[in-house]
Simulated scan of single mutants.
Amino acid sequence: MNRINTLFSIRYPIIQAGMIWASGWRLASAVSNAGGLGLIGSGSMYPHVLKEHIKKCKQATDKPFGVNVPLLYPDIDKLMDIILEEKVPIVFTSAGNPKTWTPTLKAAGIKVVHVVSSSLFAEKSEAAGVDAIVAEGFEAGGHNGREETTSMVLIPAVAARVKIPVIAAGGIGSGRAMLAAFALGAEGVQVGSRFVATPEASSHINFKNAVVDAQEGDTMLSMKKLTPVRLIKNHFFDVVKAAEDSGADAAALKEILGRARAKTGMFEGNLSEGELEIGQVSALIHDIKPAAEIVSDIWEEFEAVRKQLTTY
Rank of each mutant, 00 (worst) to 15 (best):
P165N: 06
D213I: 12
T310M: 11
S118E: 01
R26T: 09
R146G: 14
W101M: 00
G109L: 01
Y12P: 03
T310V: 10
P103F: 05
V212P: 09
D131A: 08
F138P: 02
K106R: 13
L71R: 01
A248Q: 00
T198Q: 12
I90M: 04
I14W: 02
P199N: 12
I40R: 07
F207T: 05
E293P: 09
H235L: 07
I285S: 12
H48S: 14
L50W: 03
G170C: 04
I110N: 04
L309W: 14
M223S: 08
G35N: 10
T6I: 07
M152P: 06
D297G: 06
L257D: 08
I155L: 03
G18D: 07
S9Q: 13
S117P: 10
G258Q: 06
G274H: 11
I4F: 02
V88I: 03
A95E: 08
N206F: 12
E268C: 11
E187R: 03
R3Q: 12
G258E: 02
V91T: 09
T311I: 11
N97W: 00
G188V: 09
D213N: 15
I15S: 06
G18L: 07
I40A: 10
V67P: 01
R194S: 14
E273Y: 11
D249M: 03
I15F: 02
I54Q: 05
E148D: 12
I285C: 13
P103H: 01
P64V: 06
K233A: 13
E52K: 13
K263Y: 14
A201V: 15
T198F: 12
G247W: 02
F236P: 01
S117F: 04
G137L: 08
